[in-house]
Computed example of a mutant assay.
Amino acid sequence: MRAFRYFLGAAGVGLLAARPALGQAAEVVARTQPAGPGTEKLFWFGLSTLGLVLLVFLVLFMALLLNLRLVLRKVYALPTVHDTWSGRALGLLVGDARLVTGEYRDELMGHDYDGITEYDNDLPPWWKYGFYLTIVFALVYVGYYHVARSGQLQLAEYETEMRQAARLVSAGPDDPNRLTTYAALSAPADLSAGKALFVTNCAPCHGANAEGKVGPNLTDDYWLHGGEINQVYKTIKFGVASKGMVAWKSKLAGKQILQLASYIKSLQGTKPANAKEPQGEKEAADSKPVAAQ
C-alpha cells in the first residue's frame, strides 16, 4: 500500500509540474496564425515535457506492478478470476500469456502415425477476435453500402470528387471542362458557312465529304470523342493532341466553331463513297436539331 500511495503522490506532483507546459503547448496548437521561431520552440518544449511526464508515469506504473506482483498472483490464482476474460488480461501482468497465445500449446492429441505425432495448438485469441471483427465489419459494410445504399460506392465517390474538383477550376470560355448547351444550327446560311470552313480546314484530314482519311469518318454513327453537338464543338475548339487533332480556338470564333460543328452533324447518314471504316463507339442517331440562333 505504501508503494500505491507513493505512486499516487508522484502522479499528482507530475501533473502539477506538467500543467503549465501542457497549457502552453495546447495554446500554441490552437493558434491559427503562422508560428514564429519562438512559438515553434515553445511547442516542441511542451511536447517534450509531455513525453517526459508520460515516461515518468510509465516507470512508476512498472514499479507499482513489481511491488504488487505477489498480490496480483494471489488474485489471479483465485478460481473465480483465473478462467475469466478479465483474469486472462490480469495474467499478462503476472507472466501468463494465454490471452495472446491461446489455451493449448503443443499438446499431444494421442495420434501417432509411423512415429509422427499430432499436436493441438490453439489459434491465437487475437487472431480469432480479429476474424470475428471482419465478419461484423462485412455485415455492416454490406448493409450500409448495398442494402440501405446510404454510402457511395467507389465509382459514385470518384464522380463526386471529380465534380467537386471541377468547381475549383476556372469555368471561363477557354476551360475545356466548361459545359456548353448549344443546339445545332440549321439555317442554310449557317450550314453554308460551316461547309466553307470544313472544306478549308478539315477536308485535308477528314476528306471532302467527311468520309475520313487520316482523321475518322464523320458521317457514320461512331464517334471517338462523342457525337452530341456540344461534344463535337468541344473537340473542334480544344482539339485532341494525342490523336493529332489540333485546337481551333485560336483560329476560329465561337460562332464559326458552332457553324462547323452543325455542318458536320448535318452530314450524318450521307454515306459518301470510299468511307473509312467506323472508329470509336456507336451512338444513336439523334433527330435533326432546330436552329438555336
Rank of each mutant, 00 (worst) to 15 (best):
A210Q: 01
L99A: 01
D120I: 08
E161Y: 14
L133A: 15
L108W: 06
D174P: 07
D122P: 03
A166Q: 15
N201K: 08
D190S: 13
A184M: 12
Y182W: 10
A183T: 15
K213F: 10
D220P: 03
G194S: 09
T160E: 11
A203T: 05
R105T: 13
Y145S: 01
S150P: 04
R149C: 02
Q152Y: 11
G215V: 09
D96A: 05
G102K: 14
K195S: 04
A89N: 09
R98E: 13
E103C: 02
G130R: 00
W223H: 13
E161R: 15
G215Y: 02
A156H: 12
G226H: 01
L168T: 13
G130T: 08
D120V: 10
R98Y: 01
L179Y: 03
S170D: 15
R167P: 00
D96C: 06
N209R: 12
Y104S: 08
G172W: 03
L153M: 09
G143L: 12
Q154I: 11
D120Y: 11
E103P: 01
H146L: 10
L168H: 12
N217E: 04
G226A: 08
D220K: 02
T219V: 09
D122C: 11
T84C: 03
E103A: 09
N177P: 00
A97T: 13
W85G: 10
A184K: 04
L224G: 07
G102W: 13
Y141F: 08
V94C: 06
L191Y: 00
E211Q: 14
L153Q: 06
D190A: 14
Y145M: 01
D112H: 11
L93Q: 10
A196F: 01
V142I: 15
L123C: 07
F131C: 07
D221W: 00
G215E: 08
T181R: 07
L108F: 06
E118G: 03
L155I: 11
G151H: 05
R149A: 06
E107P: 00
V94D: 04
V169M: 15
A208M: 14
T84D: 06
A165E: 14
C202W: 03
G143S: 05
R163H: 14
V169K: 13
E161T: 13
A165M: 15
G115S: 07
T84S: 09
G151L: 08
N209M: 11
G110W: 05
L179F: 03
T200W: 06
E157S: 08
W126I: 13
C202S: 05
H225E: 14
A183W: 05
D221F: 01
A196S: 08
D221Q: 03
G172K: 02
W85R: 14
A183I: 06
V136H: 04
G95R: 02
V199Y: 03
W126C: 02
I116S: 03
F137S: 07
T101P: 07
Y158K: 14
I116R: 12
A210Y: 00
A193W: 07
T101Q: 15
L139D: 07
E228M: 05
D174T: 12
S186A: 11
D175K: 02
M109I: 08
F198P: 01
A203H: 06
T134L: 07
Y104G: 02
